[in-house]
């Protein structure tokens, strides 16, 4: 019925036309609205709070509203950053964040690629599947759970290793106050949790490689190593590049849970476990030092932003298809 309406009443047609022309983007806008509003409130609005890093934020007890406090507090220029760098904290957290991330990036590429290539060579599919399932499992656990897994082995009183040391009559290591082993524990924990996931990613890329490429290489007399080097690796290049950029872009970001929860927030270990994320949290929530905390946070975001743009730019130059944006 309604479809025949325009024909019987031609003047209604342009009106209806114009309406539907505006209606479509409007309806689609309502679909985008929930997420867009969320982004606006929880991501863009806080970006305004960046000015905190340049202010001496004081809470006025008579008017505790954040906005008025922010407006009324004094501009101090770069003083917050100056104070931050006068302490050892800054040096320690930047050193730790960068050093750990560099190790994570390198091992996080080499080991999963090697594992994926090895898994692909396992001829019994059942075994390969079982290995893959087991290796992927830790990825789904939270760092708190991982910290208890670790604690079962190194708990100061009942841990398995501690108990074995005690039974052997040797010195008992108090793991949560001894800094020495922690860089290794942190690196191992991170690999333990994430290697399976990355391996699965690379494996799915490897299984996607056209098998005729290998056949051709084999007929030409390429050894297994040569096939890996000249067929597998070049095929993985795009994915390696993408994961590499994403990780370099996040080089100033540390996994909060890994550095906070796995060492059980032990103060004695701060020199080897303090990273920017944990510092920002502790300075803000524990010591209430808004100035230094927001200065460190802003520094982290700006440096990360520069890093991700640079990494992407470099990849774009080398191989335009592999770049993220």
């Amino acid at each position: 019925m309604s479809r025949r309406l325009p024909e019987t009443n031609p003047s209604a047609r342009p009106n209806r036309y114009r309406f539907s022309k505006y209606k479509k983007p409007l309806v689609l806008l309502t679909m985008a609205a929930p997420t867009a509003i969320w982004l606006l409130l929880l991501r863009y609005l806080p970006m305004g709070g960046i000015v905190l890093a340049f202010k001496d934020y004081k809470v006025n007890p008579r008017n505790p509203s954040f906005i008025s406090n922010l407006i009324n507090s004094k501009w101090v220029g770069l003083n917050n950053f100056k104070f931050l760098f006068m302490t050892d904290d800054a040096k320690i957290m930047f050193r730790n964040t960068l050093a750990y991330n560099i190790v994570f990036i390198i091992l996080g590429i080499v080991i999963p690629v090697a594992f994926a290539i090895m898994l692909n060579e396992v001829t019994k599919k059942f075994v390969a599947k079982a290995y893959q399932t087991m290796m992927f499992f830790p990825y789904f656990l939270s760092w708190v759970v991982v910290s208890y897994f670790l604690n079962a082995f190194i708990d100061g009183q009942y841990g398995m290793i501690t108990a074995m040391q005690r039974a052997a009559g040797g010195d008992v290591t108090n793991w949560y106050t001894t800094m020495g082993p922690w860089p290794y524990i942190i690196v191992f924990a991170n690999l333990w949790k994430n290697v399976g996931y990355t391996t699965v990613l690379y494996l799915s890329a490897i299984t996607g490689i056209d098998s005729t490429q290998y056949e051709a290489a084999a007929i030409d007399g390429a050894s297994k190593w040569q096939q890996i080097w000249y067929v597998t690796i070049p095929n993985l290049r795009t994915m390696i590049c993408i994961l590499f950029i994403m990780n370099v872009g996040k080089i100033f970001n540390a996994d909060f849970g890994l550095f906070y929860s796995v060492p059980m927030n032990s103060g004695a270990l701060y020199p080897v476990t303090q990273v920017i994320d944990t510092y920002v949290y502790r300075a803000f929530m524990v010591t209430g030092d808004i100035a230094k905390s927001s200065a460190a946070g802003l520094l982290q975001n700006v440096l990360g932003f520069i890093c991700i743009l640079t990494a992407n730019g470099i990849v774009k130059k080398i191989d335009a298809d592999s770049s993220m944006f």
Partner: peptide
């Protein structure tokens, strides 16, 4: 690729 950081987001 960019954010306000913990302190402003929290507040």
């Amino acid at each position: 690729i960019f954010g306000g950081g913990l302190v402003p987001t929290y507040i």
